[in-house]
Nucleic acid binder design. Structure first.
Length: 523
RNA sequence: GCGCCCAUGGCUCAGCUGGAUAGAGCGUCAGACUACGAAUCUGAAUGUCGGAGGUUCGAAUCCUCCUGGGCGCGCCA
């Protein structure tokens, strides 16, 4: 059963007769006829049922019936649209998870919004959602961070050394070094690298992570837990994982390294989990982390990764299966890179250029609402152009305002009505049968679609469906608004229309809230 | 070389997992404020859905090949 695109096909249509026919090699129109004769319309909602085309069943709903669909909007209010099919099952969304080696950039911002909104959506359909950030605070890159700060620190004290490959050159490193000098004085100047680097790594990593948390907060993104990779090692998570895999005979030794037989689960080659030098790989830690997630009781685990990591999926999936979990227990959403533009021209993504590229700077410039909305205007696995000037522009080129404006307009109407002593009625207090203009029926249908859209977004893990839906319903409303007056001399009609626009407002509010976008009553 | 993703109007993209005449926004052109907010609306033009086969009642959607792009193929993370 689906909504029709063409009114001449009725309101709903079903292709069920064609499906049955193709399975039984019968004439679809005859099946459709049999089906249509057996329809139980005890609720008297059907105007007529037609058999059309190759065997479609087209359902025409009686005019007066639509408004009854608005009852739930009224009774559910800010819960309208939400559902319970998640059944309280525990689901974890892991996202951002950037190394604390530098501030978040624009690419992380997209992942942050996709993850955050995905979590909101899943919570709205009844899952018990947990948001988590995996801190890669172990390994070489962190070491390089500490080294970078040390070098800048010594530089400040007049001791300049070569800056090796792999070290971080951003200005924030100089800032960290200067702060350290101010705080701790010269005590690291003559320390051995082996001694000094871990200290500076801990210092810099901690400071950067605090910055990341603040930036995310300003972006409206809050985590239930920041999970530390180092913590995982400290609790022997990696060691015990390796023992488990060994017991299950998924590990073998070759060339002085330990290999994980991921090919047993469809990976194209086996992967190293312990290097020749005895250190576990990043992959080993990541498996241990995922095992930890399942042990904590999450039934489903969603990872949000940059699309450049797509090649990593088969081995992670293999690991999950090797540990005895269903393949479907791990779901990966890939988020494509963002092209940052200014007036159509690419913004240099280097930190040196002084141009905008961090999450913080972008949010400061264009605002949280515009940034978040823009990141959700495409499927997450497709490239996204993000134009700073366009995102700031308060015009029809900027879809956030289009939707927020619809919301503000409705608020304005309701304010205006209140000045005349009219409050939007409750369901049952008004004659909704008066809403029979085609645009009004269209609006009611659009309102009705919201729970379906939300459910679809949850099932497919596609948050962009909400923005497309919002644009849709806002457009129908704006058009209606320009053609018709809500407040008129006709008291009954005014009441019915106030109820209608109030219902739209509820949907806009609920959907925008899921996106983490504000709902201003005046703009 | 192997693997994954993508190709839809001038531009940027949707297309509800196989349905009816492929839709939006931007841009272009022509219009609408003495009426609840013009950050809005109305109308017009623009398509061999990259190409070629195949599957079937029916394909932008599924299968194969080709072309053209992106990404991945580390004892990096």
């Amino acid at each position: 059963m689906e909504w029709t695109k063409d009114p001449s096909h009725g309101d709903y249509a079903s292709n069920v007769a064609m499906i049955i026919a193709s399975q039984n090699r019968k004439n679809p129109r005859e099946i459709a006829k049999i089906l249509s004769e057996g329809i139980d319309d005890s609720g008297q909602v059907l105007e007529k049922v037609e058999i059309a085309g190759p065997g479609f069943l087209n359902f025409f709903i009686r005019e007066g019936c639509w408004s009854s669909l608005l009852k739930t909007v009224d009774s559910e209010g800010d819960r309208y649209g939400s559902a319970g099919f998640g059944n309280g099952r525990r689901i974890q969304v892991e996202f951002v998870s950037a190394n604390p080696t530098g501030p978040l950039h624009i690419g992380h911002a997209r992942g942050a919004v996709v993850g955050d909104v995905m979590a909101n959506i899943l919570a709205a359909v009844g899952y018990d959602v947990f948001r988590e950030y995996y801190i890669n605070d172990a390994g070489n890159q962190m070491n390089n961070l500490g080294k970078s700060v040390l070098l800048r620190y010594r530089e400040l004290l007049g001791r300049t050394e070569d800056f090796p490959e792999g070290c971080y050159k951003g200005d924030y490193i100089r800032d960290l070094a200067a702060e350290l000098l101010k705080r701790d004085g010269e005590r690291y100047l003559d320390r051995d690298d082996q001694e000094a680097i871990p200290l500076l790594t801990a210092y810099a990593g901690g400071a950067i992570l605090e910055g990341i948390k603040k930036d995310l907060l300003a972006f409206g993104v809050v985590f239930d837990l920041y999970f530390s990779e180092r913590e995982l090692y400290r609790e022997d998570g990696v060691g015990s994982l390796l023992r488990t895999l060994q017991e299950k005979d998924f590990i073998y030794s070759e060339g002085d390294a330990l290999w994980f037989r991921t090919t047993a689960f469809g990976d194209e080659k086996d992967r190293v989990v312990v290097r020749q030098n005895g250190n576990p790989t990043y992959f080993a830690a990541d498996i241990a982390y995922h095992l930890n997630k399942f042990v904590r009781g999450f039934e489903t685990v969603i990872d949000i990764w940059g699309a450049d990591h797509h090649g990593y999926i088969p081995r992670m999936s293999a690991a999950v299966q090797a540990l005895g979990y269903e393949k479907e227990a791990l779901k990966v959403i890939l988020v494509q890179l963002v092209n940052l533009l200014r007036d159509g021209k690419p913004v240099a993504m280097s930190t040196r250029s002084g141009e905008f590229d961090t999450l913080r700077e972008v949010v400061d410039e264009v605002g949280k609402d515009a940034a978040r909305y823009n990141f959700l205007m495409r499927r997450s696995d497709s490239h996204l152009d993000f134009d700073l000037e366009l995102a700031k522009r308060q015009s029809n080129e900027n879809p956030v305002y289009y939707v927020q404006y619809a919301y503000a307009r409705i608020c304005s109407i309701i304010r205006m009505a209140a000045e005349r002593g009219l409050a939007p009625p409750l369901y049952g207090e008004t004659e909704l049968g008066l809403l029979k203009l085609p645009e009004e029926i269209e609006l009611i249908k659009a309102i009705t679609r919201f729970p379906e859209v939300l459910e679809g977004a949850a099932r497919t893990l596609e948050p962009h469906r909400l923005t497309f839906y919002l644009n849709d319903i806002a457009a129908i409303f704006h058009s209606y608004y320009n053609k018709n007056k809500v407040i008129s001399d006709d008291g009954s009609l005014t009441g019915a229309r106030l109820f209608l626009v109030k219902s739209i407002r509820t949907v806009l509010k609920n959907a925008l809230t899921l996106l983490g976008v504000s709902t201003p009553e005046k703009m």
